[in-house]
């Protein structure tokens, strides 16, 4: 049987969810897996709620549709919890990862989902400290590597390093890598 993991990203336009959904797919493919990464294209306004999707499998992926019943939900902006049912279709055995500086009880009170595996990491805070900008997408990838069987931290770091080294100066590359490692360490079960 194929082992398929389906990840749904929730964010606001400008936070890099499209990029993260694709980066994760690329890292998985470069690590020898099969993967798909795609966003839900709509009116791409800054701040509007958007979704992204990643599938990872040990077998070729044939599905070409959105993910309605994810295994993992990743939320890049905790203000979405007030008006988007981010956990829709997620079974209680699933995993939720939320970027927030708030405490577990506050986050729990905002979501309907009753499953156990809820994780929180202050990815925006980490990004602000390490890169000077609160763009949470790369640290969220680090946290995801810790809490799910998606892609190993080393494979992720290697892929981001290679990709970013072509486009950005060393300072930006290093900042991203430090953010990923810190989020990997700092993500906590809630």
């Amino acid at each position: 049987m194929a082992k398929l993991t389906e990840i749904r990203w929730h964010a606001r336009g400008g936070q890099g969810a499209k990029t993260a959904s694709t980066f994760l797919a690329e890292a998985a493919i470069h690590a020898g897996m099969y993967s798909q990464g795609f966003p839900d294209y709509g009116p791409e306004r800054m701040g509007a709620p958007i979704r992204g999707f990643t599938r990872i499998s040990d077998q070729p992926i044939r599905l070409h549709c959105a993910i309605d019943e994810p295994d993992v939900v990743v939320v890049l902006d905790d203000t979405l919890l007030d008006n988007v049912d981010v956990c829709e279709g997620l079974p209680e055995t699933g995993i939720v990862l939320i970027n927030s500086h708030k405490d577990a009880a506050t986050i729990r009170s905002k979501i309907k989902w009753k499953g156990k595996s809820l994780f929180i990491v202050n990815a925006s805070g980490i990004a602000l400290e390490e890169m000077g900008r609160p763009i949470p997408n790369t640290p969220m990838l680090g946290a995801l590597a810790k809490i799910s069987e998606t892609v190993a931290l080393d494979a992720l770091l290697e892929d981001i390093q290679k990709k970013f080294a072509k486009k950005f100066k060393a300072q930006v590359v290093e900042g991203n890598l430090r953010s990923i490692k810190r989020a990997y360490e700092e993500v906590r079960a809630a």
């Binding site: 694709t22 797919a25 690329e26 493919i29 099969y34 993967s35 798909q36 990464g37 795609f38 966003p39 294209y41 070729p60 992926i61 070409h64």
Partner: peptide, 12 residues
């Protein structure tokens, strides 16, 4: 190729 579904999906 199907717009977005294939054109904008990263695959192997």
């Amino acid at each position: 190729l199907d717009g977005f579904i294939i054109s904008h999906t990263t695959e192997v």
